[in-house]
Design a protein around this nucleic acid. Structure first.
Lengths: 203, 203
DNA sequence: CAATTGTTCTATGAATCTGTTGAATAATTG
DNA sequence: CAATTATTCAACAGATTCATAGAACAATTG
């Protein structure tokens, strides 16, 4: 079973499926691999009982098998962040390069969630937002940034979140917002982390 | 980091180190590998920051890096037992083959620990017993079975425990005890599992 | 029922991982 | 300071894993 966890693409797939079920085609596109290749990796995960499939019309939806699998993957990811200096460095260097060093933790966000001084942005694809999001978050998917970013209130702090610590959507959002003069920061973790803590989820 | 978890020998090493630090030589013997081979695997684990080393006189002691690593390894092992039908089957078949189907859980043991009707045996090597054991347990290491098993009270139930669900020491103890007419069962899990639950540990 | 679409399979060569062997390296002990 | 001991290194061959390309398959839709 550990062998199934042993490949970068497969880890990326699990990270992705933590947002909800997806088809082979979508997964392949997200991890920048061919459909055949993505399919092969999914077969490995399936044989390790880490993912399940659901057929609907023309598509096969893959999803994490259950909450146990999610928690194990999460534990593994947390350990790598805490234990491996390299991982921390990569994240830090990437952020630094983009002038978006500041990051708010889930705890901080939870405290400020009901404050009127904060606007919370969900910058994941619409579909993932609809499947569940942090309460009061506004959905601003990638494709609509240009039109929607301008509509945000100037005087409030903006917090952007996305899939998790390894996802760059919110980093990119923060960079763009800062360029336009907003006071923006990213949420250090992502939606799955929020959900895992048992914090309220809106739909 | 997940690659370090990816090899049967290395998993066995982590299972072993969960009992406490050990030298390369001892580890090699326990996993039935050459010293050079064991050393190589330990290097992999070390580079993944999963184990640490301590030098003392002629020996180098390897140990799990910290409680986080232990917990992650434990989570991974638990998932495999719950998720993979093969793992459960192997355990069940092995026990069945040896007429030692019965097994007591940590919870059951905890409740019965103070009862006068139960004798608790730690069948791990003496050294591991000394490093920490379940309260009231008697140390009966492999080498001393022949002489010590006969000294046990006939009318009490005997519970044997060892390193964990994949360790066969307690299975063998149960078989031998049953042969001699005792009412013996094994603890389903092992000492690390007991410790992880935060239950009291004696020294 | 034929066409289309989405997914899986098969074969291939390149890359990586493993265990073995024997030598090299430390560091302690006599 | 030489001998011994414990551990690591280096080089090799065999096994496994990987991505690619193209064919095969299954199931829905027109």
């Amino acid at each position: 079973m550990t062998k199934a966890f042993c490949n970068p693409h497969r880890l990326e797939i699990m990270d992705l499926l933590a947002q909800g079920e997806k088809t082979v085609e979508v997964i392949a596109a997200e991890i920048s691999a061919s459909v055949a290749n993505a399919s092969q990796h999914l077969q490995v995960l399936k044989q390790a009982h880490l993912v399940t499939t659901r057929k609907q019309a023309h598509h096969i939806y893959y999803d994490l098998a259950n909450a146990d699998v999610f928690n194990t993957w999460y534990t593994l990811r947390s350990l790598s962040i805490r234990q491996m200096p390299q991982v921390k460095e990569v994240i830090r260097d990437f952020r630094h390069e983009r002038d978006s060093l500041e990051a708010v933790s889930v705890d901080e966000l939870y405290q400020r969630l009901h404050s009127d001084e904060v606007v919370l942005l969900d910058v994941r694809p619409t579909e993932e937002y609809q499947r569940g999001h942090i309460p009061h978050a506004i959905s601003i998917p990638l494709e609509q940034w240009d039109s929607l970013l301008a509509t945000l209130p100037r005087h409030k702090q903006i917090i952007a979140y996305c899939r998790g610590p390894f996802c760059v959507y919110s980093d990119e959002a923060v960079v763009q917002l800062k360029r336009k003069g907003y006071h923006a920061v990213r949420l250090e973790e992502g939606f799955p982390d929020w959900k895992k803590r048992g914090l309220p989820v809106a739909r």
